[in-house]
């Protein structure tokens, strides 16, 4: 069963950076994402919340094509990224991703982590790439550790370096996949601080998170997912104080 026929590209909203249209993802018999549709507009911070297994991370991974969607479409500035495989590399460079497990390159220093993509993907000169890398590392407070290898720094520092790596590609939107979930409690703050700073600077962000107070504070919209569907999407105030759906209410009351 495919929803391919439902796609109406003419209807696409021009100032949406990302549009997800009837997205489906199946792992074998398991329907992880069912008929997901949502848009992300410039400058928005959209938080995706929900219990484990709701499909939040899979949605993010589908958006970056780390998982192949089983159906539906993903539009980047109105153009499908699923049919146009040639430009997948350029697309990914514009859609940054920050992972739960950091995924810094273990064989490179923090600085090299931030340089390699700029040189290989964007074709910048090494000098230019290093200059950009140092600027962003300084912004996330990691300039001091430019020469360190990932195994020599803490989880929070790794995550800040990973954010700098994503920023170096000058992305139009950054996807955060539970960026603080594998951090020690005292390191969560430093990473959230960086994200808060990015949000204030107008960066478009799509954040899967379990940090509810953070989601409430920085989001322009909160999306609640439950067993593969978007149950409810609204402003943080509505979702956290007066959700309309029963499932949302149950989830919010269970975590607050």
């Amino acid at each position: 069963m495919s929803n391919i026929n439902n796609i109406n590209t003419n209807n696409s909203n021009s100032n949406a950076i990302l549009e997800i249209v009837n997205l489906e993802k199946r792992f074998g018999e398991n329907n992880v994402l069912r008929d997901i549709s949502m848009s992300v507009f410039e400058g928005e911070v959209v938080s995706i919340i929900g219990s484990s297994g709701a499909g939040k991370s899979t949605l993010l991974r589908c958006i970056n094509l780390l998982e192949e969607p089983s159906g539906g479409d993903i539009l980047f500035h109105g153009k499908s990224i699923i049919t146009d495989r040639q430009s997948i590399s350029r697309y990914r460079a514009k859609v940054g991703m920050v992972f739960q497990q950091f995924n810094l390159f273990n064989n490179m220093t923090v600085l090299q982590n931030c340089v390699v993509g700029q040189v290989k993907v964007l074709g910048r000169s090494r000098a230019e790439a290093e200059e950009t890398a140092i600027m962003y590392l300084d912004r996330v407070g990691m300039y001091a550790f430019s020469d360190a290898l990932p195994r020599q720094i803490s989880g929070g520092q790794k995550q800040r370096a990973a954010i700098a790596r994503a920023l170096c590609m000058n992305p139009e939107v950054i996807l955060f996949d539970e960026p603080t979930s594998s951090l020690d409690p005292e390191m969560v703050g430093e990473v959230l601080g960086v994200m808060r700073y990015l949000a204030k600077g107008g960066m478009t962000m799509l954040v899967v998170t379990h940090e509810m107070s953070f989601a409430r504070e920085i989001s322009s919209r909160v999306v609640f997912m439950d067993s593969g569907i978007i149950e409810e999407a609204d402003t943080p105030d509505v979702i956290f104080t007066s959700p309309k759906k029963e499932r949302t209410r149950a989830f919010i009351s269970s975590i607050l």
Binding site: R92, A93, M97, N103, G117
Partner: peptide, 15 residues
């Protein structure tokens, strides 16, 4: 090699 290394690199657009 941890699959996250591949994903991290793909996510910044490397081939």
């Amino acid at each position: 090699v941890d699959s996250g290394q591949m994903e991290g690199a793909l996510s910044i657009g490397m081939t």
